[in-house]
Nucleic acid binder design. Sequence first.
DNA 1: TCTGGGGTCCTAGGACCC
DNA 2: TCTGGGGTCCTAGGACCC
Length: 415
Amino acid sequence: MPAFAKTIFHVDMDAFFVSVEELFDPSLKGKAVVVGGQRDERGVVSAASYEARKFGVHSAMPLRTAAKLCPHAIFVNGHPERYRECSEKVYRVLTSFSPLVEMASIDEAYLDMTGTARLHGPPLCAAHALHQKIKSDTQLNCSIGIGVSRLIAKVSSAKAKPHGILWVIPGQETKFLAPLDVRDIPGVGKVTEQSLHALGVQRVGDLARFNDAFLQEHFGKWGLALAGKARGEDAGGWFDTEVGADTDPKSISHEHTYNEDTANPDQIESTLMRLSEMVGRRLREHGLHARTIQLKLRYKDFTTITRAHSLPAPTQLDTEIFEQARALFRKNWRKGSQVRLLGVHASSFQSASQQEDLIEGARRQRWQQVFSAADRLRDKFGESTVSLASGLKGGFRERTHENPAGLPGKSKGQQ
DNA sequence: TCTGGGGTCCTAGGACCC
DNA sequence: TCTGGGGTCCTAGGACCC
């Protein structure tokens, strides 16, 4: 194949959350383990051990369903700090193999290994060495897929699971993909799968027989990308970016599902305050200012609305975020309706200061100092130490210990 | 058996401007 | 007057991923 073909690795940790929990509690090893919360809680499975999967348990399944399918499973709450710590260890190993590393999520990464043959040998040698180094440094297993594109690397790592390495030799992409289920293509979910089935497409090989124009007609822009993917190309969207290109977040959000639905406006607004504080904190951590604030509201019956408002000037202040979220809530809440979930979402980021009114600017700067001090206090003494909600009349705060990183798994206020 | 939380990208309609 | 089109921004919602 072309001499300029890239060599991309996709490294995917095996049953990551479960494996990390096993490091902390070896008695879990070999057992049916469900990470994400307790068996009677509102929530879903973040990760299931291979033992539990034998009973049909899989991630995103309601915890209560998992408990019925696998009554003897051990249910554990997630520990985001532990996962982050392990993820960082993995990252350190990866960067010792290539400078072009990109964590795609907490438990998977892409490496551009193009041109490293002199240093690390051929792809399979490098992959073996990497595999071993990860194991010895972190005691965790992973699988590695290797190919000429992110797509091929990603699909092949999935096929290598668990604890395997799979190299798709350049030129063999189509042959490798043809027998696979269309569902194996990243980005093809339930809905696309159904549409494809309606066209008589079950496997990637079937898809590859359509021409680009036909798929574009049927699926728009996504159809064109799909056509490329059937050939193993990183066509369109995020896949088409260079590995390791820098990645500022495009949005920051926090949401909360109540253990019990509520129609109490005071409780709801104090939750909004807390969520706004969390969003503001993350904005400040990233040095970002958001122009658009969005409220998410889910009712008891699961109907969900989002309502957004764009500010004249970008902000990173808790109070401004909260004011918007609260205004959106007051304007859109069906009074008396039971609320299940609330979310506060910030987007349309803009570089620090455009041209602000000078006096306004000075006032805001003082506030920013106040909030930064509060952040430091929270770092030191914990999330519940400092709250700006104290001025809320009658508002009582839910005593939840939010997971600051927003990783899957950890849940719930106790009540 | 009810359905978490944090993201990304895409579509589509309406406002508004030229 | 009943008739445009393109571009961009804003908002709402949905598919999908881990």
